[in-house]
Design a binder for these strands. Sequence first.
DNA 1: GTCTATAAGGCGATAGAC
DNA 2: GTCTATCGCCTTATAGAC
Lengths: 204, 204
Amino acid sequence: MKAVSPVREQLLEHTLVLLGTRGYNGFSYRDLAELVGVKTSSIHYYFPTKEDLALAAVQAYAANIGEIMRDMDVNGPLKEQVEKYLALWRKNLGTGRVCLCGMLAAEATSLPQNVLAALQAFYSMHEAWITQRLERAVADKGVQLPAPPSVYAMTILGALQSGLISARLFGKPCRLDAASAMLRSAVTPENGKQQAAPADAVLS
Amino acid sequence: MKAVSPVREQLLEHTLVLLGTRGYNGFSYRDLAELVGVKTSSIHYYFPTKEDLALAAVQAYAANIGEIMRDMDVNGPLKEQVEKYLALWRKNLGTGRVCLCGMLAAEATSLPQNVLAALQAFYSMHEAWITQRLERAVADKGVQLPAPPSVYAMTILGALQSGLISARLFGKPCRLDAASAMLRSAVTPENGKQQAAPADAVLS
DNA sequence: GTCTATAAGGCGATAGAC
DNA sequence: GTCTATCGCCTTATAGAC
């Protein structure tokens, strides 16, 4: 158990919120300082530059989600894993936040290389996770996909990222459901047939 | 033929580039003024506030793309229309730009309501276009989709938006291909079966 | 560790000459 | 229409007292 600075912890926590809500170019040290109740110079003590802060935030965000994803046994119940994974996405709904890494990916031109590398790692982690589940669905359940698992995983991750963003844009949480349904049906045997919209996929 | 101010035209044109590259919070009047070769005060003459500028940019962007989309006869050759549509997305590759509206959607919390409304209209326009083509593929070609056309259209648009962003993040243009392949296969009769990756969908 | 104070410059926006 | 000049504020970052 490593000793942690509670101020540093709070700074990081609020940075996660600010980045997920307004993005890298959309918040300042002043915003963060006021939220935590310190002066901006104290932020520099823990994170010398804003880029250091962003890197730490992406790493903490990825580590947190990565741990949850790694804790799901690859050989456990497929549908259960997928639902737990989708709940991870869904919990952003209504908070004004989107996926921190989806946000920063859009702002890539404002970010240094080490942050970009961390973002790439986040994307790769998700795509690998989804790919593994799709492969199991194909092998165990004979599911048929419209593309190879690793390719389909990329589109599903993209649809989820964009789903959060468009759900916030329209103020309609249900806009994430289309992407969720896509992953859900990909691990369900009777996919590939035209289906009625799932109960949670109401569109208006 | 309405008279147009060449300076206003240039300002708008460069704003499209700046917004698609760096986003709303990622560029300044100074950046824009230097690109066009005027002083910042001249920008205010044409666009009193930055929000006015953003609104005009979104409207110009949507009008330009909307015209191209409307010019494609709904009853024309399906595959040809889809390829023309995908070319619209592909032309961003390698330019450092993503879809202007996908970018601004991520920055929604920094934007005024009228810009958000214009962004929603852009999204709706694309989803309606894609939905119509998917419906034709289902009706004419008996294609089977993993979701109702309007739902699947939403995921395809999301995958395309995110595809551009992740292609830029990784520096790999081929990252857009997964989303392209999804739309392409959705209007191709022998979809639904497990397919080999299309030639342009090489992943590494 | 946290603060005050400040540097050095960027920001959007405006007034008014030409 | 375009400019110069400037306002008032914000930005990241640093020096140094405590």
